[in-house]
């Protein structure tokens, strides 16, 4: 019947959205469970290369050192639209605008000079548009750049949490939908004394709130007895597939 097919398709779309958002799906749907498992495994973090992380941090420090020298000019460019619209009032407005920026920078409401130490003004910036500018097309595609400017007017810091070195709260727990399949893997691995993959374990540890809590977490989730943790084998690179 045509109506019921349309209904099925709507259900499919709703299910697909749940899977894409990693929300729990109805229990007992084998196909959805298998898909949820596949997606959860795909979404497990790939281990990064520590060398490259160090390189990225070094690049960050370098960029910070480079921009702190030339930032005065960048700020001037940032207020240019305001100056242009009031050009009729003469250069006076521009002077005020620049003065305002200077004051704002001193009071810490603008991204100020970089401080690597803990003291110093913590620069805060408003986010008038939550979306970054879209890049144009093109071949050697320039990175999308967010628009400059509009910074000088706001003084209310939107950031509410603690200081620059406030500790990071624990990660939110993954959904049970994704973890259920992984728990089955985990329990099966333990029962057969096989290794469990590091990415799987990392995800379960986040879900359970710690390595020690995983057996109990899985036992509760899939209704199986608690197991002795299986050994871990690290994610091994599988070369050649994309060549």
């Amino acid at each position: 019947m045509k109506d019921s097919r349309a209904h099925d398709e709507r259900m499919d779309a709703a299910l697909a959205e749940r899977l894409l958002d990693a929300y729990p799906t109805a229990a007992g749907d084998g196909r959805a469970d298998a898909l949820a498992h596949l997606l959860a495994v795909a979404a497990a973090p790939l281990p990064g290369d520590p060398e490259r992380e160090r390189a990225a941090l070094a690049a960050f420090r370098e960029a910070r050192a480079a921009t702190s020298g030339g930032r005065g000019r960048r700020r001037v460019r940032g207020v240019r639209p305001a100056r242009r619209t009031r050009a009729a009032l003469g250069g006076l407005v521009a002077v005020f605008a620049l003065g305002g920026v200077a004051v704002a920078a001193q009071s810490g409401s603008l991204p100020g000079p970089f401080h690597s130490g803990t003291a110093g003004p913590r620069p805060v910036s408003p986010s008038p548009s939550s979306a970054p500018a879209n890049p144009g097309g093109g071949t050697r595609t320039a990175s999308p750049r967010a628009p400059q400017g509009t910074t000088a007017t706001s003084t209310a810091p939107p950031v509410t949490s603690g200081g620059p070195h406030a500790s990071v709260p624990p990660l939110a727990a993954p959904t049970d939908a994704g973890s259920k399949g992984l728990c089955q893997t985990y329990v099966k691995a333990a029962e057969h004394h096989k290794g469990v993959n590091a990415a799987t374990l990392a995800r379960l540890e986040r879900a359970a709130g710690g390595a020690a809590a995983v057996p109990a977490y899985c036992a509760r989730l899939i209704g199986a007895p608690e197991v002795t943790p299986p050994p871990v084998h690290p994610e091994t690179p599988e070369g050649g597939r994309h060549r």
Binding site: A59, F60, A63, P128, S129, S130, R145, A146, P147
Partner: peptide, 13 residues
């Protein structure tokens, strides 16, 4: 990441 680092200051969002 090279590009992100380079353009981070201009990012709003």
């Amino acid at each position: 990441w090279h590009d992100v680092v380079r353009d981070l200051r201009g990012f709003r969002g």
